[in-house]
Amino acid sequence: MELLDRYLAAVRFWLPKGQRQDILAELTDDIRAEVEDRESGLGRKLTDAELTELLQRRGSPYRVACRYLPQRTVIGPAFFPVYLLILKAIGLFYLLPWLAAWLFMVAFLPSYRAAHPGWEVLLPLVELVQRAVNAFAFATAGVWLAQRSAERTGIVDRWDRTWNPVLPAESKDPLRANRGEWMGQIFGDLVFVLYWVSVFRLPAIPDLRLEFAPILAHTFYWPVLILALASAALSIWNVVRPRWTRRRLFVWLGIEIVEIAQMAILLSAGPLVLLAIPQATPDKVELLAGWVNFAVRLMLVGILVVAAVDVFRAVRLLFKLRSTAAAGAAPAAVRRAV
């Protein structure tokens, strides 16, 4: 019965200390009774293979022990979606930008690579892992505390007729553009256009000259301006007639694709901003110019990511529009527009 003893020893390892002996004694008796039953039926001792099969049918020692243990979770099912949302936000808004910034510096800043020769360039990844562990630990502790205090104070158990959340809106039409979003877009586009045509200017800093490199100031002046005006026109169109049409979705798709192409070209070009500080030494000017260009490129990466997301949204809406039209569910106005 060495096999059985080993199995029981393995179960013992996982059992809670206070009940270990009691559970094991009962489990041992149950298994031995089953073994004896089988042996008396066969008229012989069980072989090792048969005993192994019998124990395997009962489950691994870990699984067997788990059935005796109380169910414990750090975050309960009600708070879990919030917890998951926080973890996603940490990943998306903290860890991912951090990683993107590091990748950008490695790819585009020779000075950064020079300062971190060889394997040293990978060292920040260790820091990233540490940051991720810390962030997840804080998030877990925070949600656990919130859950515990909500349960202890009884907030989650309170409800009366005066506590009425807003009724959920009627099922939202996915093909209707969000007016608020597009009004914001109009504002952003107009501010940018006014800046681009020099109606708005940034306040001057004494003894510092900051200007766009020729690729931005000349080569891309009109393409950028035309694209911003097209985007503003589309936004106005969406605010006035918020229901998407196939033609308008293709216009949006076109604008975003051109924007991605512009950003890609600009990102692969040399310095985008030129800096001149007469009183500073050339190496200091170069260092500062490097950081300013880094910030500008980071902004362009952000614009590129947003444009890529918009392409995805536009394509998804096109599919949705097609399936709606195919199902004949689109209102007459939409069918006319399509």
């Binding site: 009962e26 489990l27 149950d30 009962r58």
Partner: peptide, 24 residues
């Protein structure tokens, strides 16, 4: 009854229950 005979008695009456459920 003790666990094993209880399990057999239940099985004989068509209520099979595995030991991992019965003992806890």
């Amino acid at each position: 009854q003790y666990g094993y005979t209880l399990r057999k008695a239940l099985a004989a009456r068509g209520m099979e229950i595995d030991e991992g459920t019965l003992y806890p």
